[in-house]
Design a protein around this nucleic acid. Structure first.
Lengths: 196, 196
DNA sequence: GACAAAAACGACCGGTCGTTCTTATTCTTC
DNA sequence: GAAGAATAAGAACGACCGGTCGTTTTTGTC
């Protein structure tokens, strides 16, 4: 019972990697199998359907995001330090942990915005959770006295995501060398507005 | 030579419509043909390859964007009126001219950010042009005395695009009823910063 | 080392993909 | 209305899709 789990993990890992470049639909069982030196049927035997595999890959992504971005930020003191850590982590996540591959969530957001089903549902759930996490961090910064009390935390959260999306757009599609600087400047401006 | 052009136009129009929901790769010749009551080969005869069709669809999108967003805005007086018109037009474009279908450019940005080729090249070109158009409108607003002279127009342009992307995210994936309000608030805040 | 269970294999299913032919129909023009 | 070109259809192709099957190899346990 040990070898199976190990292989299964390898499949999900590889699928996660490929999905960052090709989208979840773009990862076919055939190419996934051959890139792992596995037979297609041998690979498929680990999952009930391709959709089940896709859901596992999405879950893997959520786990990685939590580990890479959310948890470290929660280790920081409430208020601006934590918010800063979240934004830094978010940028570094989008930049790609190991260089290649883009943010899976933003890819899937477009891939599934018109495709109903469990994958879309789970994706929406995770995106709302991320927005809530950001908004909560903003509210804590308010209660810590770091930010004004009159601000709209949900508005701030979605603007933060907007900065992240623009960053991805600039860095991955346009190959803009100033992308980092731009994202940072946008964040600083947003913060200044919230502080005032 | 007239019937052909007409059919061809119908194909590109329909393909443009479908691509908004399925992406350019997602539009297959078979489904495209049958949705037009055409045979697959009869449809294909109008193009040398699928990639050629994709490029024509992208060109169609660029033309529509120019007609719906850029040109009307250029009819407005330089400065804030024109910038406002651009932003309004951008939002309405993302919202979908006829209700359904998302912004093709943003879909393609993710679909092709890791897929080299002529489609990607043309897409990047068009996106840079849009950023330049926005930045130029900002600069004109500066020279008209509507905005501060110390601002970074390119920075402002990419932040505008970021607001648009966040808007699309909120409205299409998350079905957030406040999406319009949020985008407007972000724009107002940005404008206030640029004016100060 | 035997033996059952787990895991991987290879062949194959019906379908669809983009593409290429040849053949038939429909236009346009004189 | 006939001639010739433009347009569409039809059939077929090789490759690949997700998925199923029975069989063989590997693995963990006693």
């Amino acid at each position: 019972m040990r070898k199976g789990e190990q292989t299964r993990k390898g499949i999900v890992d590889k699928a996660y990697l490929l999905a960052g470049q090709l989208g979840l639909e773009g990862v076919t069982l055939g190419t996934l199998a051959s890139s792992l030196s596995l037979s297609k049927s041998g690979l498929f035997a680990h999952f009930k359907s391709k959709e089940a595999l896709q859901l596992e890959v999405l879950e893997e992504a959520i786990g990685r995001f939590t580990r890479h971005v959310v948890t470290p930020a929660l280790g920081k003191p409430r208020g601006l330090p934590r918010l800063n850590a979240m934004f830094d982590g978010y940028l570094s996540w989008i930049r790609g942990v190991s260089g290649r591959g883009s943010c899976l969530f933003l890819s899937l957001a477009h891939e599934y915005d018109d495709r109903p089903g469990p994958v879309r549902d789970r994706l929406v759930e995770s995106q709302r959770a991320w927005l809530d996490t950001l908004a909560k961090a903003v509210r804590l910064a308010v209660s810590e006295g770091h930010l004004r009390g009159t601000i709209d935390a949900d508005q701030a959260a979605i603007e933060l995501v907007g900065i992240g999306m623009a960053y991805q757009h600039a860095t991955r599609l346009l190959k803009d060398p100033k992308a980092d600087k731009r994202a940072r400047a946008a964040y600083d401006a947003l913060l200044q507005r919230l502080r005032k």
